[in-house]
Design a protein around this nucleic acid. Structure first.
Ligand SMILES: [Zn+2]
Ligand SMILES: [Zn+2]
Ligand SMILES: [Zn+2]
Ligand SMILES: [Zn+2]
Lengths: 153, 153
DNA sequence: AATGGAAATGGTATTCATTTTCATATAGTG
DNA sequence: CACTATATGAAAATGAATACCATTTCCATT
C-alpha cells in the first residue's frame, strides 16, 4: 500500500501515545478514499502485516471520533463507517447505495439551521447527524434503474 | 392504558391483514408520546396482556417504516427508536440526551437543501437522515451542567 | 542505559439488538 | 365450512460492539 500524506496528518493527531498500532490504523485510514468499517480496517492492517487487534481498532476509531478527526456514517445495517475528516471542520456526505462511493456536500445551510433550532429550543451542547444516500448517475445507467423498493424516505 | 385516536389511524394504515397483534402494536405506539424501542414495545404489549411476539413487533415496525407511518432515530448505541408520524410528512426531532424527551422541529429548510444537493449531484432516490440531540433546559438546571465530554460534534 | 508505573494492546468471552427459520395458527374469501 | 395465502412466534442464528484482564509497551525520570 502506498502512503499519501500520513506524516502530516499523523503529526496532526495528538492522541495519547504514539504506538505502532495507532499508526497502522491511521495509515490505512489515510489511504481509504471512502468510508470503511472497523472490521475492514482490521482486515486491512492484518493484510499489511502490521496486525492490529480488533479491540484496538475499535478503540482507536472511538478516539478519533471523539477528537473529531473522522466523520462517521451508518450503513443500512447500522454498521459504523469511518472516514478521515479532510479539514478541521466536519463534513456531510452523499453516499451511493449501490456502489458505496461517497462525496462530501456543501452543508453550511444545515449547520446554520442546527444552531438556530438548538438555540430556539433552549438546548445545550446540540449535536447533529446528517446523512444522505441515493443512487449515483453511474449506477442508475448501469443497473436496471430499480429503486429496490422505491419508497423515497 | 388509554386509547387516544387509535381508530382513526388504525384505519389509516392499509397494511396486509388486520390482526390482533398488529392492532396491539399500533395501539401502544399511539399512546407513546416519545420514541420507543422494539423491545420496549414488546414489553408494553405484554404488560397489556395482549402479548405480541418480539418477531412480530419487529416485522410490524419494519412495515410501518416502509409505509412511512413512523419516524425512526437511533440512540447512541445504535438501537432503533420509533415514533408514530404525526402527519403525512415525515418529521425530524431534537432529542435530549439526558431525559430522552423529544420534540419535533421545523425542518423545511433541510428538506429543501436535500433536494437541492441530490439534484446537483445527479443522484436519484435520495434519502436522508437528520438527527439532533442536546441537553434540554430542564436537564441543564437539574444536572451538574457537565457536557460529559464537551466535544460538540 | 535502567527503571517503574501508567497507558495501551489484544485474545477471548459476553452482550444484546435484530434477523432467520420453520412449524403452526389464523384471516379472509367464496 | 373448507381452503389458502398470509401472519405469528419460539427458538436459534447472526454479528457488531464491548467487557475482561493478563501481558506488553511507551516514556518521563533517575
Ligand atoms: Zn453508485
Ligand atoms: Zn454538520
Ligand atoms: Zn432533558
Ligand atoms: Zn426530512
Amino acid at each position: 500500500m502506498s502512503c499519501r500524506n500520513a506524516e502530516q496528518l499523523a503529526r496532526a493527531l495528538p492522541a495519547g501515545r504514539r504506538t505502532r498500532q495507532r499508526g497502522a490504523v491511521l495509515h490505512v485510514l489515510l489511504d481509504c478514499p471512502d468510508f470503511v468499517s472497523a472490521q475492514q480496517l482490521h482486515a486491512l492492517t492484518t493484510a499489511d502485516g502490521i496486525g492490529v487487534g480488533l479491540t484496538t481498532v475499535y478503540r482507536t476509531l472511538r478516539e478519533l471520533e471523539a477528537r473529531g478527526r473522522v466523520d462517521v456514517v451508518r450503513d443500512d445495517v447500522g454498521e459504523r463507517l469511518y472516514r478521515i475528516r479532510p479539514f478541521g471542520r466536519h463534513r456531510h456526505y452523499l453516499v451511493c447505495r449501490a456502489c458505496g462511493r461517497s462525496r462530501p456536500v456543501e452543508a453550511d445551510a444545515v449547520e446554520a439551521w442546527v444552531d438556530l433550532i438548538g438555540e430556539a429550543a433552549g438546548f445545550d451542547a446540540v449535536e447533529h447527524t446528517v446523512e444522505l444516500t441515493g443512487i449515483c448517475a453511474t449506477c442508475r445507467t448501469d443497473a436496471p434503474a430499480v429503486a429496490d423498493d422505491g419508497e423515497p424516505l
